[in-house]
Each structure stands twice: as C-alpha cells, then as structure tokens.
Design a protein around this nucleic acid. Structure first.
Lengths: 368, 368
DNA sequence: TTGAAAGCGCTAACAA
DNA sequence: TTGTTAGCGCTTTCAA
C-alpha cells in the first residue's frame, strides 16, 4: 500500500506538503502542487481514511439503524437515505434492529465505536439506553419516521394525521360511511397519529368512529390479514378500510378475497406509505405516499447541520413533511375514474395544507 | 470521551495492561484484570475502533455493493447479509451502484479508503476498473448473484439453470406446451443461465424453444409488462410464461389483465427469486425461491476465510446454491391443488439434485 | 506479570 | 511557502 511518504519522496517534498495539497488547507506553490498531484496519481495514492479520521475526529460516515431493511417501506426509505448521504459525501453503515432492544443497542455501540459522525434511527425496541449512550458520546442523532416517548431526539416524520385524514376523507367522498381503521402497534407514534386523522375526518363528516372498527396490529401482511378478518367479524357492514401501511393493506386484500368481498367495490381501501408494492397488487392500492426523497434529504441535512453545530436551537430540529394521496383502484376511483379527474373533487380545508392529491398510476420516483 | 489512559489510571496500571485485558492477548494477574475490568465499566469505556483498526489493520467492517437496495430482491438479500455479518461480528457499509459504473467505482473507493476487511459486490455496471482497484488494494471481494465476464472473482450464485429448468418442467407437467421465457438483461450471467434451463427443459420434453417466445428485458415491473405484451403479440398462442424475476412477473400479471387473459388459467406463470412480493400478488406467484439465508452465510463465510488467508485455493471459491420451487397459484396448482400434494408429481432427474420442491403458501423465513 | 516506547498513517500547530 | 514535530488512541514488541 502506497503512503503519503512515497508520494512525498516522488514529488521531492515533505509528507506535510502532500497533506496540504490533499486538503488544500495550506498555501502551496503552484509548481509544487503540480508535482504532488502528478505523484499522487502516478502512484494511485489514496489517503487512509482511518488515519485521517483518527486525526480529524470525522469519519464522513453515518449510521442508519432500521427495524428491518427488507420491509418494503424501510427498503425504500434506506435507499433514499443512502442516496442523499452519497450526494453529501457520506458513506452509510446499515443496521437492522429487528425490533430487539439488545440488537439495536449493539448497533448503536458498533456505530459509536466506529466513530460515525451521526446516526439516523428508526427505533423499534426500547431506545432509552441507546439514546443515553448516544448523548454520553455526544454524537448527533435524529429519529426518523416515529417519535419515542420521553426521548427528545431531533426528528423527521411525515404528517401522519394529515395523511390519514386525507385518506379517510377520500373514502367519505366515495360515499363510504362505515369506515374501519387498521393501524400499527399501539406503541408507535405514527400509528397513533394515523388514528387521530381517521377520527378527525369522521368527526368532521358527522360519522361515528366506533372502537369496534379500530384495530392496532403490527405492520405486516399476516397481521393485516388477521385483523381485517376480525374487523369484518365485529362489524360485517364495514364498507371501507383505512389501512395504516401498504403491507397491512395487502393482508386486507387477501382477507377480502377470503370472504368473497370485492376490494374497491364492496369494501374500499386506502392505505399508507406509497411503497412500490402498492403498485403491484390487484387491484392497485390507493395510498398515502410518503415523500421519500424529501425525507431523506431533510434528515441528512439536519444531521449535517447538527454535526457542524451540535449546540443549535433544538426547536427547529423537528420537521413534519407532507404526504400525497395517490388515487388508484382500491378506493373506488378505478381505471375509468382516473381519466376523469372531476369525478373526485379536490379536498379542501385543514388537510390541504399538508396533503397534496395526485392523480397517478405509479409512484413518481419508482426505483426500478 | 474516556480513553484507556483514564481506565489505566483508575485501575492503577499502565495503559498497556488495559489493552491486554481488552484483547486478552497477554497474561494478566487475576487481581489486576479484575481492577481493570471494574474500571472499564465504571467509566463506561469503549475502545476507539478507528485507533484500533489503524494499529491492527482490521476494521471488522464489510462493504456491500448492490445495484439498488430498494429492489425487493436486493432488499431481501441485503437483509440476510447484514444478519450474517452481524452474527460474525461485522458491520456493513452499504452502497447502491444504481447500475452506474462511476458510482460503483465511487463506492469501491469509499470502501477501500475506509479500509473494509472485505467487499461483497453485485456488479451492475462495468466492474473492470473496480476489480482492478480491489486487486491493487489486495482487499478480498466476492461477487454475488452474478458473474462478470473476464473477472475471476470468488463467487456465490444460485443454480439459475437448474431453477429455471424446474420451473419450466413444472409448467410442462401442467400440460403447457407453448412456454415463453422472459428474463433479465442479456449482459447478465444469471439471465443467460435461466434461459439455458428453460431451453433444456423444453428440449427434454421434445418441445420447441422458439426465439419469438424469448425476451430479454430489465428486471423490473414495467419491463416485464411491456415484454409480456410483446411476447403475446408475437405469439398469441402462448400458454405459459417463465419469468426470470418476481418483479417482471408482476408486470406479466398486469399485462395479462390488460388483454383479458387469466393468470394461472389461460396463461400459467412461474417466476424466479421468491421475494416477499411474490406472495403479495393476486393470484400469488409460483416462484423459484432463492435460499437467502444460505447465500448470505455462505458469502460471509467465504469472505472471512479469504480475509484470514488471502492466498487460498481459488477453485474452492465458487459456490452454486440450490433453489426451491414454491408452488402457489399462477402455475395452475391453485388453492385446491395445494391440499393434494399428489396431483403434482415430484420432479426427477437432473434438476432434482439442485432443486427442491416445496408445497407452501409463503416463503419459510418471511421478514415481516 | 507489568511497563516503556515505537509504530499505524494522517493532520495541524509551530518554526523556519 | 515548506518542513519539523507532536499528537489522534490503540497494539505490540521488547525489557524489566
């Protein structure tokens, strides 16, 4: 491995000068600089980032802690983050906490040990201890997608309540009146907020938000399937379901088929997330799309400012991004309706400030 | 930040002794060791991995280069790899090459600069230069999922030909005779091998493998959709399609719906990969499942042995893992058939050695 | 069994 | 404008 002494010798300068041109942190005579540059690429020299980091206390590496990167939602999210980090010149260390407090803590330590400049975390388990160690190490971190009670981490989340409200309002516009809500684990702030949006839309329309039409269950296909069957059993008259995630909605689709109900006709569905899979189902899911690219750039930007200045105004470090209702088939709009935007009037009022409505067949920035 | 000198002072020993107990690389008196251990966790001391790596030339970090981690297949794969790496005590740096040679090279350098112990790559663009730099840096690397012409990297791939053969044979068993093949970009070894399996099964059955029934197109929903329509136009009599990936099969499903053909009835489908999305479609995809966990443990294991001993026998560094045909609905087995294993006779002959047949509704190790 | 000291490859004062 | 030198926090001979 060629080191900067080799470069220095070839260029006929001292090792320090090599550093100067590398980081141009110091004035260097044009002629000298040229010789050094020439030597550098003649030898194919690349500075050792470990040594550099040890000296500068900067690794240009971020830690990304997710519950499970194979989940379509987190996969989409992590891809966007990796992209934003790459743009900013940062590499990312990825860890899946798999909803295990111990494993999450293991990754927090692995990241800290490796001296990442910052950490982005979607906490799954109990993040209290991880958060404590993060603070002790004074490493900037931002909480993504959800908030955890008692932990005042800077955060980037979407307008869950607004998105859920828009989804529910849209179902109401379709004439649905017995609208159920299927959402994630009760411990998750995102799940709770979506319920609030659902309730709000129903209340505004003078419709009841009955508890028997509400189900908290994990964000998974299986859980969505089981919960849908149970909702249907508790109230067979349900004519629409707002599902808190695309994966759950896939389970809902399956459950409806099981009992012989037609999605989008007998029971309308609107889900949340707008992951690629929402476009793979039959019929396609009408869904509240999260702005992945914006989330990613925002969270990376926030982390970088925090790295620059760790002691900045905390109040400005909580961002809520808007979502977009993407009308496809399961809400009842269907292929025919899609060609006639007028049949579904635009939403007005509260949710309009945070939720855009879109008429589209696929997510704008598809990954494939 | 507390360093080992603080620990040493508190324990009343020299800094060196702290190292000794940390790595137990040296005999230490029991009493001394105890004092050091006590000091370590009283102070919450954690060794700086950068400094340690600089001294030992080991980072316990792997670089994982993928085309695009949001793709369901790579998402599934990366999750399995992250898991295997975690088991082995390694962290992983993740990079998406997005089929760009420049970006792939950027990541190879980012990984090399950070002195990863090894690299796992699923090359998308032209990997020649990356491979050159990898060799120059003498950093072990293994090629995953596909091989690249002219590059003799250690590799872990699945039995693409065998899986494709099993898929096609299964379609033949269902009485299909005009079986088309839809597969990935012509430049990909995996795509080519799947075509070979398709041809082989047809040949064995005395069926023609007509070129008009073969299409090379990217592994994406859109491409699968367009290619299916074209195949159908070239030969409207097609009664089955072997799709080289689940994502393409989703496009096929959509195309069939477009032209009013019923999947699993008018046209049977078997796809490849066995990603979670294959279970989200309607009807569910019969698919050739890749052994994600085995692939991951194998590739990590191979990389670790290479790290231990870079100069080992190259011939043993190419592994081909078996796939499993997972019968669901699109092949024609359908829910009814699933309860009667006898209706679909087990395969015999060549493919039996590398392809297991399974009767199951979902992938065994689901991530949700 | 313990300690002193020389690296690992770089940055960054400080001198020249 | 360039060179010298002292770290960065650890491992690891080599002596004691």
């Amino acid at each position: 491995m060629v080191g900067r002494v080799d470069v220095a010798r070839l260029a006929g300068v001292s090792p320090a000068v090599v550093s100067y041109v590398l980081n141009d942190s110091h004035p260097v005579a044009p002629a000298t600089r040229e010789r050094v540059v020439a030597a550098i690429d003649e030898l194919g020299y690349r500075p050792n980032a470990l040594a550099r980091s040890l000296a500068t206390a900067r690794t240009h590496t971020l830690g990304l802690l997710l519950p499970e990167s194979a989940n379509p939602y987190f996969a989409r999210l992590s891809s966007a983050i990796e992209d934003a980090a790459f743009e900013a010149g940062f590499a990312v260390l990825l860890g899946n906490g798999v909803d295990s407090t111990a494993r999450e803590l293991g990754y927090v330590r692995a990241f800290l040990d490796r001296r990442v400049d910052g950490i982005i975390a979607v906490p799954g388990g109990d993040f209290a201890e991880g958060w404590r160690e993060l603070q002790a190490a004074k490493v900037p971190a931002v909480s993504l997608d959800r908030l955890q009670a008692g932990i005042d981490l800077p955060s980037v989340v979407v307008d869950n309540a607004g998105g859920a409200r828009a989804a529910t309002e849209h179902l109401i516009e379709h004439g649905r009146t017995r609208i159920a809500c299927l959402t994630g684990g009760e411990g998750l702030s995102s799940a709770q907020e979506r319920v609030i949006g659902w309730r709000g839309a129903l209340a505004d329309a003078g419709l009841p938000a009955e508890d028997r039409r509400l189900a908290f269950t994990p964000f998974s296909v299986e859980a969505g399937h089981a919960a849908t069957l149970e909702l249907l059993e508790r109230d067979p008259a349900i004519d629409a379901i707002f599902a808190g995630s695309d994966t759950q909605a896939v389970g809902t689709l399956r459950a409806l088929a099981d009992v012989g109900l037609r999605a989008g006709e007998d029971v309308a569905i609107v889900s949340f997330d707008g992951t690629p899979i929402s476009d793979y189902t039959t019929p396609r899911l009408t869904t509240v799309v999260q702005p992945y690219a914006e989330i990613a750039t925002e969270v990376v930007r926030m982390l970088l400012t925090l790295i620059e200045d760790p002691a900045q105004d905390r109040s400005r470090l909580h961002r809520v991004l808007p979502t977009t209702l993407l009308r496809r088939d399961t809400c009842g709009c269907g292929p025919a309706a899609r060609s006639d935007a007028e049949r579904v009037p635009a939403l007005a009022g509260a949710s309009a400030t945070t939720t855009r409505i879109e008429q589209n067949q696929t997510e704008p920035k598809e990954f494939l």
